[in-house]
Design a protein around this nucleic acid. Structure first.
Lengths: 232, 232
DNA sequence: GAATATCTTTAGTCCGTCCTAAATAATGGA
DNA sequence: TCCATTATTTAGGACGGACTAAAGATATTC
């Protein structure tokens, strides 16, 4: 109840992380719950309760006890600024400095709290103002707009569906690397050949330069891959 | 008395800043005093006392009460790692991203605590492993060697002396910008035309592409410029 | 050598961010 | 409807890193 309206005073690293997490959880529609935030940030639920009070005091979120948390306009803007930083950094680190695809997330996670707005904009310019990061996530604009399409995960697809991979969860480097080895990365064209029952393996045909290859992955992995159906 | 010999466990930002400051102060020979560290880091002397105990506990420095502080081998290596990061970042930010010369110091000051070793090495490679940062400071090698020449400041020069600017203090952006405007930057050739008595202005001839220009600066400014005599 | 000035350290706080353990609220079955 | 489970919050602490005020050590000067 004491936050200035649009001050954009510098926020601490942890605060930026909370806001990002809340943004992410809230995107599915429901308010973000204490527990979800705790899981996402690998922090105890009690810690989240504490931080939630502080964020609410600063006017970055609203909190209905036992119900969950929503970003205010200020909070959303702060979250989007951080997200822009993060994703521009990911682009730059892969495209210009050649850091491996699966490790840029972690690096960006640290740099996003330290890089100035100016630096980020220089990187964005150097890259030609990209619209998506290397994992397919959309990059918010300077003024806080994002095209956050609600994508379906590959795990929701049925036999015969043909889809294009548009985005993947970037937190887990090992899974990311494995999926990339199978040819599953943003832009890839995939067809579901078969789905075994009882959450069994999903058999795919993954197109590539040499025609394609048959692959099988579990549901857990498929859940990290977001796709859009091909309509042709 | 409980630090592991060469662990290189990650250090916090503040700790890295203390080690850098101590390294810098200790370079002139004497142990770094509490007060000097406090002044350099713009922190109270009491805070330094507290931190000194922690650093000593971690085996990064040795402390003789009321006498001062010295880096251990571990501490020196940590300081040099941070310094390498800082200076490579400064190079990269100016040379590749075109950040203004006088502002890279503060940007690097933040990024140096967040950038991974790998990122720094990629930047160094992209730059062709430079030996000096944009302000003329030598860049420590990966294995912790530096050519720390003991330079004289421009303020120590007398009438008629001819010198090459080799390095300048980078903390103060405004002064840096002003000196650069006068043509005083690393590499510049300068002759002392006159020194007014009682700490008065120093009149210089500064060579440049168009022949050169006469300039006058105060002692305070001249103290921030380090030079080597030209012997020819 | 005593008095004074200057440094340094200790004592006691504070804030941010985390924790565990215990208390309280909401929810879903029987 | 009441009970058990699960989610959330509160209570109470820890730690790193900063502070001010006061006390102790060293240096300087007469």
């Amino acid at each position: 109840m004491s936050g200035s309206p649009s001050a954009a005073q510098p926020l601490s690293g942890p605060v930026e992380d909370y806001l990002k997490a809340i943004y992410d959880l809230e995107r599915v529609g429901e308010p973000a719950t204490t527990n979800d935030i705790a899981l996402q940030l690998r922090v105890s639920a009690a810690s989240v309760s504490g931080m939630v009070r502080r964020l609410a005091d600063q006017g970055l979120i609203t909190h209905e006890p036992y119900r969950g948390v929503r970003l205010t306009l200020d909070g959303r803007h702060a979250a989007l600024r951080t997200l822009r930083r993060h994703r521009i950094l990911e682009c730059y680190l892969t495209a210009v400095l050649g850091l491996p695809w699966d490790r840029v997330h972690e690096e960006a996670e640290r740099l996003e709290h330290a890089a100035s707005e100016e630096l980020i904009e220089r990187m964005a310019d150097a890259l030609g103002n990209p619209l998506h990061d290397p994992h397919g996530a959309p990059i918010p604009t300077r003024d806080g707009r994002v095209e956050e399409s609600t994508l379906r995960s590959l795990a929701e697809m049925g036999q015969g569906d043909r889809v294009r991979v548009s985005r993947m969860q970037d937190e887990d480097a090992e899974r990311l690397r494995y999926l990339a080895e199978l040819g599953i990365r943003p832009g890839a064209l995939v067809r579901v050949l078969d789905r075994a029952p009882f959450e069994g393996p999903i058999t795919l045909w993954v197109d590539d330069a040499g025609g394609g290859a048959q692959r099988a992955i579990g549901v857990a992995l498929a859940n990290q891959v977001f796709v859009e159906p091909i309509t042709d």
